[in-house]
Design a protein around this nucleic acid. Structure first.
Lengths: 136, 136
DNA sequence: GCACAAGTTGAAGTTAACGTTAACGTAAGC
DNA sequence: GCTTACGTTAACGTTAACTTCAACTTGTGC
């Protein structure tokens, strides 16, 4: 295992992020990264690890894998072409809007949860009083 | 169409929320709501409409349909049993934690997007200067 | 009374994101 | 030299959430 501090095996990453090796290979299959090989064994770099992190975060935010891949590729070099830079900025703004709406949804749901919990606590209190009465 | 202001047809709801009627029927199939019937035609109440709204919001936040169903059922009556109230509060807190983490993810991704956009703008500026030089 | 729009059910097909299984190579430790 | 642990590929299976399709009924206008 090449634990030189800068590379990782597939099982190291799977353990660290709580996913299966199959999942990581699947991510490679659909082109989320292309780790180096020693023979046919994969060797993951810090960059690969960061990508994995971004993918999982994207997943928690409801992104599809291709969407995550697009975002990841934004951070890559080789997009010095002016036109590409402009479309990248466009993509960024679309994602931003998406997150804005998600933030609104999140706030609303938080409020709903608060209300629901208060309702529950009120009912619990009512039940308690009822029991008190019966016990007395 | 019973547009008495309090009920909706399936196509009214599908139009309002931009989903197909088949999708709505699918939600019924898996028990997200049980609209009344006039004959075999579904008649949706305001409560049904609200549930639909919650489901779609849940979807945007990455919930599965069963998860959304659980949350929806929390707002329902008939859970005056103390034990049920306690488990409901537990569910609420789990969802709250989930949302908290999602909020963190969201903030991080926002920051990433900002950084990425700044990077792009800087490169664009560099390209502009280069063009200026060549033009001169 | 007949077309036509809008409703229905049931079943099969689709897509994304893996899971599962088989069949095999490699390196370490005893 | 045998086990054990970890790695590989290839191919098929599974689940969720729908979509598509076919065949049918029901209510409305003319």
């Amino acid at each position: 295992m090449p634990t030189d501090g800068n590379t990782y095996t597939i099982s190291e990453l799977s353990r660290e992020f709580g996913i299966t090796t199959r999942t990581i290979r699947h991510y490679e299959e659909i082109g989320l990264f292309t780790p180096e090989r020693r023979g046919q064994t994969r060797i993951f770099s810090n960059a690969d690890r960061t990508k994995l992190k971004l993918i999982l975060r994207g997943k928690r935010l409801g992104l599809t894998l291709p969407e995550s891949r697009d975002i990841i590729n934004m951070y890559e070099p080789g997009k010095n072409n002016t036109q590409q830079l402009l479309t990248t900025i466009d993509t960024i703004n679309q994602q931003r809007q998406r997150l804005q709406r998600q933030l609104q949804d999140l706030k609303k749901m938080m409020a709903d949860l608060d209300r629901a919990e208060n309702g529950c606590r009120a009912e619990l209190e009512a039940n308690r009083k009822l029991r008190d009465k019966q016990t007395r």
